[in-house]
Amino acid sequence: MTRFLLFATALFVCLQSILAVSIDIGPHKKECFFEDLNVGDKLTVTFQVGEGGNLDIDFSIVDPQGSLIKNERQMAGTHVVQANREGRYVYCFSNEMSSVTAKSLSFNVHDMERLQETAQQHIDPLEREIRELAESIFAIKSEQDFFEQREKQHRNTAESTNSRVKWWSLGQLSLLAAVCMWQIYYLKRFFEVKRVV
Protein backbone atom coordinates (compact mmCIF):
# COMPACT_ATOMS: atom_id res chain seq x y z
CA MET A 1 0.00 0.00 0.00
CA THR A 2 2.84 2.38 0.85
CA ARG A 3 4.53 1.66 -2.48
CA PHE A 4 1.34 2.31 -4.41
CA LEU A 5 0.75 5.56 -2.55
CA LEU A 6 4.35 6.60 -3.15
CA PHE A 7 4.10 5.74 -6.85
CA ALA A 8 0.77 7.56 -7.23
CA THR A 9 2.19 10.66 -5.52
CA ALA A 10 5.31 10.65 -7.70
CA LEU A 11 3.22 10.19 -10.85
CA PHE A 12 0.89 13.02 -9.82
CA VAL A 13 3.85 15.33 -9.17
CA CYS A 14 5.35 14.39 -12.53
CA LEU A 15 2.14 15.01 -14.42
CA GLN A 16 1.68 18.37 -12.73
CA SER A 17 5.13 19.60 -13.76
CA ILE A 18 4.76 19.04 -17.51
CA LEU A 19 2.87 21.20 -19.96
CA ALA A 20 2.46 20.35 -23.65
CA VAL A 21 1.04 23.06 -25.88
CA SER A 22 0.40 23.44 -29.60
CA ILE A 23 -0.17 26.93 -30.94
CA ASP A 24 -0.45 28.76 -34.26
CA ILE A 25 1.46 32.02 -34.55
CA GLY A 26 0.35 34.36 -37.31
CA PRO A 27 2.65 36.57 -39.37
CA HIS A 28 4.05 39.57 -37.47
CA LYS A 29 2.88 37.99 -34.17
CA LYS A 30 4.63 37.06 -30.96
CA GLU A 31 3.41 34.66 -28.24
CA CYS A 32 4.90 34.81 -24.75
CA PHE A 33 4.52 32.54 -21.72
CA PHE A 34 5.99 32.68 -18.24
CA GLU A 35 7.06 30.51 -15.33
CA ASP A 36 7.68 31.63 -11.75
CA LEU A 37 10.96 30.12 -10.59
CA ASN A 38 12.90 30.10 -7.35
CA VAL A 39 16.68 30.44 -7.18
CA GLY A 40 18.29 27.20 -8.40
CA ASP A 41 15.25 25.91 -10.28
CA LYS A 42 15.83 24.71 -13.82
CA LEU A 43 13.29 25.28 -16.57
CA THR A 44 13.40 23.12 -19.71
CA VAL A 45 11.59 24.30 -22.86
CA THR A 46 11.45 21.91 -25.83
CA PHE A 47 9.85 23.06 -29.07
CA GLN A 48 9.35 22.01 -32.70
CA VAL A 49 7.93 24.02 -35.62
CA GLY A 50 5.44 21.78 -37.44
CA GLU A 51 4.47 23.83 -40.46
CA GLY A 52 4.80 27.23 -42.06
CA GLY A 53 7.46 29.01 -44.07
CA ASN A 54 11.01 27.76 -43.56
CA LEU A 55 9.94 25.98 -40.37
CA ASP A 56 11.94 28.37 -38.20
CA ILE A 57 10.90 30.64 -35.36
CA ASP A 58 12.60 33.17 -33.07
CA PHE A 59 12.87 31.89 -29.49
CA SER A 60 13.88 34.09 -26.56
CA ILE A 61 13.99 33.86 -22.75
CA VAL A 62 14.03 36.92 -20.47
CA ASP A 63 14.82 36.86 -16.73
CA PRO A 64 12.87 38.82 -14.04
CA GLN A 65 15.20 41.82 -14.42
CA GLY A 66 14.42 42.06 -18.14
CA SER A 67 17.82 40.77 -19.27
CA LEU A 68 17.82 38.61 -22.40
CA ILE A 69 19.13 35.13 -21.63
CA LYS A 70 18.68 33.47 -25.05
CA ASN A 71 17.61 34.70 -28.45
CA GLU A 72 17.87 32.27 -31.36
CA ARG A 73 16.11 31.39 -34.61
CA GLN A 74 15.62 27.63 -34.87
CA MET A 75 13.37 24.91 -36.29
CA ALA A 76 13.49 22.88 -33.08
CA GLY A 77 15.35 23.03 -29.84
CA THR A 78 15.69 22.25 -26.17
CA HIS A 79 16.69 25.05 -23.84
CA VAL A 80 17.48 24.67 -20.15
CA VAL A 81 17.63 27.76 -17.95
CA GLN A 82 18.76 27.76 -14.35
CA ALA A 83 17.21 30.54 -12.29
CA ASN A 84 19.79 32.88 -10.76
CA ARG A 85 17.07 35.16 -9.43
CA GLU A 86 13.66 34.46 -8.01
CA GLY A 87 10.82 35.69 -10.15
CA ARG A 88 8.99 35.43 -13.45
CA TYR A 89 10.94 34.08 -16.42
CA VAL A 90 9.30 34.87 -19.76
CA TYR A 91 9.90 32.79 -22.89
CA CYS A 92 8.58 33.96 -26.25
CA PHE A 93 8.06 32.52 -29.72
CA SER A 94 8.12 35.22 -32.40
CA ASN A 95 6.99 35.06 -36.03
CA GLU A 96 7.58 38.78 -36.60
CA MET A 97 10.08 38.12 -39.41
CA SER A 98 7.37 36.46 -41.54
CA SER A 99 5.15 38.70 -43.63
CA VAL A 100 2.72 36.08 -44.99
CA THR A 101 3.10 32.65 -43.42
CA ALA A 102 1.65 31.51 -40.09
CA LYS A 103 3.63 28.93 -38.12
CA SER A 104 2.34 25.92 -36.21
CA LEU A 105 4.40 25.22 -33.11
CA SER A 106 4.36 22.53 -30.46
CA PHE A 107 6.30 22.90 -27.21
CA ASN A 108 6.77 21.26 -23.82
CA VAL A 109 7.72 22.94 -20.59
CA HIS A 110 8.99 20.73 -17.80
CA ASP A 111 11.30 20.77 -14.85
CA MET A 112 13.21 17.52 -14.45
CA GLU A 113 16.11 19.02 -12.56
CA ARG A 114 13.96 19.74 -9.50
CA LEU A 115 13.05 16.05 -9.38
CA GLN A 116 16.71 15.05 -9.68
CA GLU A 117 17.81 17.36 -6.88
CA THR A 118 15.15 16.11 -4.49
CA ALA A 119 15.94 12.52 -5.48
CA GLN A 120 19.56 13.03 -4.40
CA GLN A 121 18.55 13.83 -0.84
CA HIS A 122 18.28 11.10 1.77
CA ILE A 123 15.19 9.25 0.61
CA ASP A 124 14.00 5.71 0.28
CA PRO A 125 15.69 3.80 -2.60
CA LEU A 126 12.26 2.84 -3.94
CA GLU A 127 11.19 6.47 -4.10
CA ARG A 128 14.47 7.34 -5.84
CA GLU A 129 13.76 4.65 -8.45
CA ILE A 130 10.24 5.99 -8.96
CA ARG A 131 11.59 9.48 -9.54
CA GLU A 132 14.17 8.18 -12.00
CA LEU A 133 11.35 6.36 -13.78
CA ALA A 134 9.38 9.62 -13.90
CA GLU A 135 12.40 11.37 -15.43
CA SER A 136 12.64 8.65 -18.06
CA ILE A 137 8.94 9.07 -18.82
CA PHE A 138 9.48 12.81 -19.33
CA ALA A 139 12.37 12.15 -21.71
CA ILE A 140 10.32 9.61 -23.68
CA LYS A 141 7.33 11.97 -23.85
CA SER A 142 9.53 14.77 -25.13
CA GLU A 143 11.04 12.52 -27.82
CA GLN A 144 7.60 11.21 -28.75
CA ASP A 145 6.29 14.75 -29.23
CA PHE A 146 9.33 15.58 -31.36
CA PHE A 147 8.79 12.54 -33.60
CA GLU A 148 5.06 13.25 -33.80
CA GLN A 149 5.78 16.75 -35.10
CA ARG A 150 8.33 15.39 -37.60
CA GLU A 151 5.81 12.80 -38.81
CA LYS A 152 3.18 15.52 -39.21
CA GLN A 153 5.62 17.70 -41.12
CA HIS A 154 6.63 14.85 -43.44
CA ARG A 155 3.01 13.80 -43.97
CA ASN A 156 2.07 17.38 -44.93
CA THR A 157 5.01 17.52 -47.34
CA ALA A 158 3.98 14.20 -48.94
CA GLU A 159 0.33 15.31 -49.26
CA SER A 160 1.41 18.62 -50.80
CA THR A 161 3.67 16.80 -53.27
CA ASN A 162 0.88 14.36 -54.18
CA SER A 163 -1.50 17.27 -54.78
CA ARG A 164 1.00 19.06 -57.01
CA VAL A 165 1.71 15.89 -59.01
CA LYS A 166 -2.04 15.34 -59.46
CA TRP A 167 -2.67 18.87 -60.76
CA TRP A 168 0.44 18.78 -62.96
CA SER A 169 -0.72 15.47 -64.49
CA LEU A 170 -4.23 16.84 -65.10
CA GLY A 171 -2.72 19.94 -66.71
CA GLN A 172 -0.51 17.82 -68.96
CA LEU A 173 -3.46 15.61 -69.90
CA SER A 174 -5.64 18.57 -70.84
CA LEU A 175 -2.78 20.17 -72.80
CA LEU A 176 -2.17 16.87 -74.63
CA ALA A 177 -5.87 16.56 -75.47
CA ALA A 178 -5.95 20.16 -76.76
CA VAL A 179 -2.85 19.59 -78.94
CA CYS A 180 -4.35 16.34 -80.32
CA MET A 181 -7.62 18.10 -81.18
CA TRP A 182 -5.75 20.95 -82.85
CA GLN A 183 -3.59 18.52 -84.87
CA ILE A 184 -6.64 16.56 -86.03
CA TYR A 185 -8.39 19.78 -87.06
CA TYR A 186 -5.29 21.13 -88.81
CA LEU A 187 -4.56 17.89 -90.70
CA LYS A 188 -8.21 17.54 -91.67
CA ARG A 189 -8.19 21.04 -93.14
CA PHE A 190 -4.84 20.40 -94.84
CA PHE A 191 -6.16 17.42 -96.77
CA GLU A 192 -9.48 18.93 -97.71
CA VAL A 193 -9.94 19.50 -101.42
CA LYS A 194 -10.97 23.04 -102.13
CA ARG A 195 -13.04 23.54 -105.27
CA VAL A 196 -13.65 26.80 -106.89
CA VAL A 197 -17.07 27.05 -108.48
Rank of each mutant, 00 (worst) to 15 (best):
T2E: 13
L6R: 09
L6V: 07
L6M: 12
A8Y: 08
T9W: 09
T9N: 12
A10E: 06
L11W: 09
V13R: 11
L15E: 13
L15C: 09
Q16C: 06
S17E: 08
S17K: 08
L19R: 15
L19S: 15
L19M: 09
A20K: 12
S22P: 03
I23Q: 05
D24T: 12
G26F: 01
K29L: 06
K29V: 04
K29S: 14
K30N: 09
C32M: 04
F34E: 15
F34Y: 14
F34R: 12
E35P: 00
E35C: 05
L37C: 01
N38E: 15
N38I: 03
V39C: 02
G40E: 04
D41L: 00
K42M: 13
T44K: 10
T44W: 04
T46K: 09
T46G: 07
V49H: 00
G50D: 11
G50L: 13
E51D: 14
G53C: 02
I57N: 00
F59A: 01
F59C: 02
I61M: 10
I61G: 00
G66H: 02
S67H: 13
I69G: 00
N71A: 08
E72S: 06
Q74W: 08
M75K: 15
M75D: 15
T78R: 12
V80N: 06
V81Q: 01
A83N: 01
A83L: 00
R88I: 05
Y89N: 01
Y91D: 00
C92F: 02
S94A: 05
N95C: 01
N95K: 02
N95R: 03
M97Y: 14
A102I: 02
N108C: 05
V109Y: 00
V109P: 01
H110D: 11
D111P: 00
D111G: 06
E113K: 09
L115R: 05
L115M: 12
E117F: 07
Q120K: 15
Q121C: 04
Q121H: 06
H122S: 14
L126E: 11
R128T: 02
I130V: 11
R131E: 04
R131G: 07
A134H: 03
E135K: 14
S136N: 13
I140K: 13
K141Y: 11
S142E: 15
E148F: 10
E148Q: 10
R150Y: 07
E151K: 12
K152G: 08
R155F: 12
N156W: 07
T157G: 07
E159T: 10
T161R: 11
R164M: 10
R164W: 08
R164S: 09
R164C: 04
W168E: 07
S169H: 08
L170R: 12
L170H: 07
L170F: 11
L170A: 07
S174H: 06
S174Q: 07
L176E: 03
L176Y: 04
A177D: 03
C180M: 10
M181K: 07
I184S: 05
I184R: 07
Y186C: 06
F190R: 15
F191P: 01
F191R: 10
E192V: 11
R195V: 10
R195M: 09
V196W: 14
